[in-house]
Amino acid sequence: MDWEERIDAVWAEASGEMVGDEVIARIDAIAAERGPGDARAEFERAGARDSAGREAEAVELYRRALELGLDDEHRPQAVIQLASSLRNLGEYDEALALLHRERELSAGGVYGDAVAVVEALVHASAGRPAKGLSVAILALVPHLPRYHRSMTAYAHDIADADT
């Protein structure tokens, strides 16, 4: 198996379970094959810690992976996961800044709805549930068969209800 397949195999075996030290060790061992300067390896190490509830450790590794430069498939994932970890740590402003930048970078990309979902969660966690609901509704509007105009208007109307 190649590197990617071995990483995928570890994640597949861990599916549905709380990630612990064993999964982290396995991911770290595979990641080490690429060395400390590899963005993708750092991303996988971050994800293992994130899945184990070690958000503070994951945040530093996600940042390093992004600094090293991830491809267009993994960069949005890293930003989403980093923002989610920051949300869990109460760093709402930084999480939102990352998500807004990613939305601009990958406008129309496959992770656009995931960015919106995490943004909605950040707003809700920050005590702005109406703003979070507004973001979620706006993300759903393009998927609706009808009612685009009215749902967009409703979403904008409730956005400021938290103030």
Rank of each mutant, 00 (worst) to 15 (best):
L89C: 07
L89A: 10
L89P: 06
G90V: 14
G90E: 10
G90D: 09
E91S: 13
E91M: 10
E91H: 13
E91D: 15
E91N: 11
E91F: 01
Y92S: 14
Y92A: 12
Y92C: 02
Y92N: 10
D93S: 13
D93G: 09
E94F: 08
E94K: 12
A95P: 08
A95W: 03
A95G: 07
L96A: 02
L96P: 04
L96Q: 07
A97L: 08
A97D: 08
A97I: 08
A97N: 05
L98K: 04
L98T: 06
L99G: 00
L99I: 05
L99Q: 03
L99S: 02
H100S: 09
H100A: 15
H100N: 11
H100C: 07
H100P: 02
H100V: 13
H100L: 12
R101H: 03
R101Y: 00
E102F: 01
E102T: 06
E102V: 02
E102Y: 05
E102G: 10
E102K: 02
E102Q: 12
R103M: 01
E104D: 12
E104Y: 04
E104G: 06
L105D: 08
L105I: 10
S106H: 13
S106Q: 14
S106E: 15
A107N: 06
A107Y: 15
A107G: 02
A107S: 13
G108W: 08
G108T: 05
G109L: 08
G109W: 13
G109K: 09
G109M: 05
G109I: 07
V110P: 15
V110T: 14
V110E: 15
Y111W: 10
Y111N: 01
Y111G: 01
G112M: 11
G112Q: 14
G112V: 06
G112T: 11
G112A: 15
G112R: 07
G112K: 05
D113R: 09
D113W: 04
D113H: 11
D113Q: 10
D113C: 04
A114R: 08
A114L: 12
A114E: 11
V115P: 05
V115R: 02
V115G: 00
A116L: 07
A116I: 00
A116K: 06
V117M: 08
V117K: 00
V117P: 03
V117F: 08
V117D: 01
V118P: 00
V118Q: 07
V118L: 01
V118Y: 02
V118D: 04
E119C: 05
E119R: 00
E119K: 04
E119H: 04
E119F: 02
E119P: 05
A120C: 03
A120Q: 00
A120M: 01
L121T: 03
L121K: 11
L121P: 04
L121C: 13
V122F: 02
V122A: 02
V122G: 00
H123S: 07
H123N: 09
H123R: 06
H123T: 06
H123P: 03
H123G: 05
A124N: 08
A124Y: 12
S125E: 15
S125F: 15
A126L: 06
A126D: 10
A126G: 04
A126Y: 06
G127D: 10
G127Q: 11
G127M: 08
G127A: 10
G127R: 08
G127W: 08
G127Y: 03
R128Y: 07
R128G: 01
P129R: 12
P129Y: 14
P129F: 13
P129K: 12
A130D: 14
A130L: 12
A130M: 15
